[in-house]
Nucleic acid binder design. Structure first.
Lengths: 184, 184
DNA sequence: AGTATATAGTCACTCGGTGAGTATATCCGA
DNA sequence: TCGGATATACTCACCGAGTGACTATATACT
């Protein structure tokens, strides 16, 4: 079975699980909500949504039943299984690894569901993520120090990552304010 | 044949083509060069390198011949075909789409090969990429303007992207200086 | 004598992501 | 009123990214 979760993969599957944790829904509806609520963060096609739902079903994270409609096509109504709920809640409490893209996409999604459920959790996540990013910056700075001056492109790459992570620290503060999680 | 190049895909295949444009080489060596020259930019496994080489060969971008070694295992020596060289050179002159990760990874790689071949091209690429990023920022700012205030997470996502793209503008200037492409 | 590391790969697999195709219903303008 | 766009609700086949497990041999170190 080998548990193929490198934990680096960022996938909208948790957004789908999160929407299903709120209430059962069919694929088209889930896709709609993903687009309207987090459409500037995730850019996925309808067929990709169905791909993920199919996988989640074969993995036993969700179940489906068919709902007949007299005029429009039938729908598959999906529902979380206990395993699926656990998977979502575990994810909800796991900090995002210190990657620029992962934070923009996955962390923002996590924050979305955290705030919807419990604003205190959202504040904790931001604090925790801030620490993760600070450590990440320190680690990359070390790598930069070890990187010989003739490695110009490796150095440029590292410098860009550091600058982008610093921006993320500012942005995390901005999140707290924008979402009304702190008294200013 | 359908030409499946969404042009958004960022892949180390062009780095491999670029190294092969310099001289024929075998897979292990290509992987070594990728790691030492651009290892902070691309993080790929040896097996991934071979995957790409196999694909490039079936696509007719490279050819291989077997080189016997008496002690160590045999090697496949890869060489660019004219089609492969064209593909690489087309890529070398194509600006990277305005995505943070694509610029950090793909543009940096392009710059690496551009400078190795012709520093003037490197300077042009930076100028062109700067314009692309400026346009991208403007586009995202428009999207942000159209994004209603209750779309807090979509707005946060857009704001982060804008901030990161601004950093990239600074970084592009830094590239010019670091690589000695302008008289300061 | 045993262990780690470098050389040089192969293979099977999962997952991300796209495009094309299949239906039906409804709305809007010419 | 008729045709085209758009919304609903998917299915399917495919390509490509990326990983881990595996197979060998040579050399260096401990």
């Amino acid at each position: 079975m080998s548990e193929h979760r490198p934990s680096a993969s960022i996938s909208p599957e948790f957004a789908l699980l999160g929407f299903l944790a709120q209430r059962p829904a069919h694929g088209y509806d889930l896709h709609q909500r993903l687009v309207t609520e987090l459409g500037e963060i995730w850019h996925i096609r309808l067929s990709q949504t169905y791909n993920i739902l199919n996988r989640l079903e074969t993995q036993g994270m969700i179940t489906s039943r068919l709902q007949k409609q007299d005029k429009l096509p039938d729908r598959h109504i999906f529902e979380l299984t206990p395993a699926g709920l656990k998977r979502f809640e575990d994810w909800l409490h796991t900090p995002t690894p210190c990657s620029v893209r992962a934070i923009r996409v996955e962390f923002t999604t996590r924050l979305y569901f955290a705030r919807a459920g419990d604003p205190r959790l959202a504040r904790e996540l931001i604090a925790e993520q801030t620490r993760t990013v600070e450590q990440g910056i320190a680690r990359i700075e070390t790598a930069l120090g070890r990187c010989s001056p003739d490695q110009a492109f490796n150095r440029l790459g590292l410098q860009l990552r550091i600058a982008q992570l610093r921006i993320i620290l500012d942005w995390l503060k901005q999140c707290e304010v924008t979402l009304g999680l702190v008294e200013v």
